[in-house]
Design a protein around this nucleic acid. Structure first.
Lengths: 201, 201
DNA sequence: TGGGTTACCTTGACAGTGTCTAGTTATTGT
DNA sequence: ACAATAACTAGACACTGTCAAGGTAACCCA
């Protein structure tokens, strides 16, 4: 029986991730430097390398956590919906809510030069899990691979939600839709509703 | 009458931008460092600061050029279309073609932490020009501001095209749609066509 | 109980970066 | 022709990611 003495390995690892998240949320991804992370975690500037091969590995871990969180957002949103149409709408709204609430992580998750999922299989699995959930919720055949024609509607819907989230996040729609996340989310609902209405006409 | 001696001011400025573009296209935005730009342009590491206040100003200039180029893509695509429906489709396709052909510039144009258009009015104007073109082509009332309900369809369509471009660019759709730009553009056409077909049903 | 292996972490160094400051050269207007 | 100004260079600073080498403490097996 090993009694925890001061800081176990896992504590250090967790501290590093915690510091990374804090930095990211405070000053954006640009503020997340290995040395500052180490400083915050109270370890030497080289300690993080014992847990993560390089900066990209930390980002990949954070992105993976992001995909898990997105998954949770979507699952609980779907759970509240009664019929198929409500589910579809809830899915898109959850996607955008996640993006607005976690802008930096969202960026991380969808920028291949920051986190190339090819190199981080466990993060890729989490991402794929999200995509599967989207595809199945929107009614694609189970296990349909991305080349299938069945997925055209899925990708179209995904693109709309993703594009809207991105444009809002990057301020390309101006502040016309409000400067609070609640207002922007409300605007997003209207736009998604319009799209959905066209689809089911 | 000033005879050009060796390299005029404008030449140097142009050389700096040229080197910037080359670096960006070769190694991505991360490879675009002030010092490397200067090295390529054959000037001291400090010379670029005489033309651009900082790294962000170079990026803003490149982004501005990007918006101009996007504008051209869209205008010439619209020109070839006969009716309204064809114009709408051509617009979205041109948007995606631009993104696929100029991935790095496209990223630059739509990432506010890299180029905050608020700080670069002339780049912002070029961006607004693009948005106006999109809005008017898609049939919004002339001069409608972004808060107007008339713009809901415009933003919905824009989101779809932008999201699709982004997801493709970042490799989130896998290589299922092919690894050449032509193949991907073809796939994008199918997806946009599906969306448009829903809208006009 | 002792010795060695290993995981964990530190310190030091290197090349690279953006940008400030100061200095130098060239061009221009009068 | 001369002073002012623009264009450019050189040096320095603090910062970055990461390699290399060293140290320390825990564990395993005799």
């Amino acid at each position: 029986m090993t009694v925890t003495k001061s800081a176990t390995r896992d504590d250090v690892r967790a501290g590093i991730l915690e510091a990374s998240i804090a930095l990211m949320n405070e000053g954006g991804l640009g503020a997340l430097s290995m040395r500052e992370v180490a400083r915050r975690a109270g370890v030497s500037h080289q300690a993080p390398y014992h847990y993560f091969t390089d900066r990209g590995a930390i980002l990949a871990e954070l992105a993976g956590e992001g995909f898990d969180k997105l998954y949770d957002y979507m699952v609980s949103a779907i759970g509240l919906a009664r019929d198929k149409q409500a589910r579809n709408r809830a899915l898109g709204e959850a996607y955008i809510r996640f993006a607005l609430n976690n802008p930096e992580v969202f960026r991380l998750m969808f920028r291949c030069e920051m986190v190339d999922l090819m190199n981080y299989p466990e993060a890729k699995e989490k991402a794929d899990r999200c995509f599967q959930l989207v595809a199945e919720t929107l009614g694609a055949p189970i296990g349909a691979d991305k080349t299938s024609a069945d997925l055209v509607p899925v990708i179209a819907a995904w693109s709309t939600a993703h594009g809207l989230a991105t444009l809002m996040l990057e301020g390309k729609l101006g502040e016309a839709f409000g400067d609070t996340n609640d207002q922007r989310e409300e605007a997003a609902k209207r736009i998604l509703a319009f799209t959905a209405q066209q689809f089911t006409k």
